[in-house]
Computed example of a mutant assay.
Amino acid sequence: MRSIPTDLLRAFVTIVDLRSYTRAGEQLGRTQPAISLQMKKLQELLGVSLFTKEGGVQITERGELVAGYARQILALNDEMMLKLSSRDSKGKLRLGIPNDYADHFLPKLMSTLARDGVEMTFDVVCDISHNLLDGLRRGLFDIVVAMTPDGPSEGAFMTWKEPLTWVGAKDFPFETIPRNPLRIVCYPEGCLYRRNMLTALQRDGRNFEIVYTSPSLSGLEAAVGAGFGVTVLARRIIPSALRTIESARDLPRLADVVVGIYVAPDRKRSAVAQSFAARFADMFVAGHVDPMAE
Rank of each mutant, 00 (worst) to 15 (best):
A146T: 05
P291A: 01
D88S: 11
P149H: 05
M283P: 12
D256G: 04
D290I: 06
D17M: 09
D17N: 12
G168R: 03
L242K: 07
N77P: 09
K40P: 11
V66G: 01
G68L: 06
G135V: 01
T165S: 06
I238F: 04
D17I: 11
C126P: 14
A24E: 14
R138K: 13
L95W: 08
M80P: 10
E64L: 08
A75R: 12
I245M: 08
Q274N: 06
V257R: 08
D134C: 08
T176I: 07
L109G: 02
K83G: 01
S240N: 07
K41H: 14
T176A: 06
T14Y: 09
V285K: 05
D134T: 13
S129K: 08
R179F: 06
M1W: 11
Q27T: 13
E64K: 14
T231Q: 07
M1H: 11
G229K: 12
H288I: 13
M197G: 02
D266C: 04
A24W: 15
L220A: 01
F172E: 06
E119N: 10
V13E: 00
R62G: 01
D142N: 02
V232I: 05
G25H: 05
A114K: 14
R253Q: 04
I59F: 10
G168P: 05
R206S: 08
T52P: 10
T199F: 11
V285D: 00
Y193F: 12
L242P: 09
R30H: 14
E162F: 07
A264I: 05
L9T: 03
T176G: 07
L76W: 15
F122K: 05
L76D: 05
G190K: 14
L220I: 10
V258Q: 05
S20K: 04
L65Q: 10
L50W: 00
L251C: 09
L18F: 11
M158S: 12
E54P: 13
S111A: 04
R23G: 03
L46N: 06
R30G: 04
A241W: 07
A156L: 09
R267W: 10
R236I: 02
A277M: 05
D266M: 04
D204R: 12
G219M: 02
T148V: 03
I59G: 03
M292H: 11
L42A: 04
V145W: 07
D7M: 09
P173F: 02
L182R: 15
K40H: 13
F228A: 14
R115N: 08
K83C: 02
A264M: 05
L164C: 01
Y212W: 09
